[in-house]
Amino acid sequence: MANWLDVASILGIMAVAVALLMIGGHFDLSAGVMTGTTALTVGIVAVELQQNIWVAIAAALVLALGVGAFNGWLVTRTGLPSFIITLGTFLMLQGLNLGLTKAFTGTVQVRGLADAPGYHSAELVLASTVEVFGQPFRIAVLWWLLVTALAAWVLLRTRFGNWVFATGGDEVASRNVGVPARRTTIVLFMTTATAAWLVGSITAVRLTSVQANTGTGQELIYIVAAVIGGCLLTGGYGSAVGAALGALIFGMTQQGIVYLNWDADWFYFFLGAMLLLAVLTNRLVRRYAEAAPR
């Protein structure tokens, strides 16, 4: 149980943030590689530049917020689909990850985080294991619950949450009634970047070494989890708790296939089938809401 919860928690933190962005009407393809970029930044600053690990984590946060703001600014400024803009930042970050890691270490991975000053406190916060009812749980599960609760609260209980739904539902209409749609979009991109920073830091501290290709390819899995959790691809509808459940289903399926002694090669088949089922259900919801008599 601890095992699939662990898979679900790392994915869930990202899926929840990606869900907020999707409700706001956008995609972030750079979210997966961002977890690698932040993890590598933590590693390079702590090991190669010999800084305290907390300094490294702070530097990674600044970088993440910068990339998120850049994504959001470019999307709102140009009006181009976020799909294509973030595909650009995705590829650029992928290149930077590899190029800079090699430039600093001469290899394709950063090693030796365990020896960095401040590692033990960072491990306690980001990568420790707690025992509940005799079961060991990674502390990432706690972060996942925290992120989900915070996202759900913001989405349903704050003005900003109302603006997220409105911006994703109809950007022009919401701007006409005074919603700061541009600001909302930029903040959402910075939110996914911040989630990627959290996941990147957890990964770096837990594994103490980071591969240059960490996170690449995960961006679509986040979107799948958000859609299984009820987010519409067209924006304007979805929930944070749903995305967290989507991540949970993903983790259970991935580990469940192993426990059932099924061939794990079939995992992606089930994943695809779940995605299709979720999309078809979402479509019914939208029809119900929009095809009302005029």
Partner: peptide, 18 residues
């Protein structure tokens, strides 16, 4: 009308002036 179809009536009513 500047209303968002997928949002509830009360959310639409106060949209932008919550």
């Amino acid at each position: 009308l500047a209303m968002i179809p997928l949002m509830s009536i009360w959310r639409n009513f106060f949209l932008g002036s919550e």
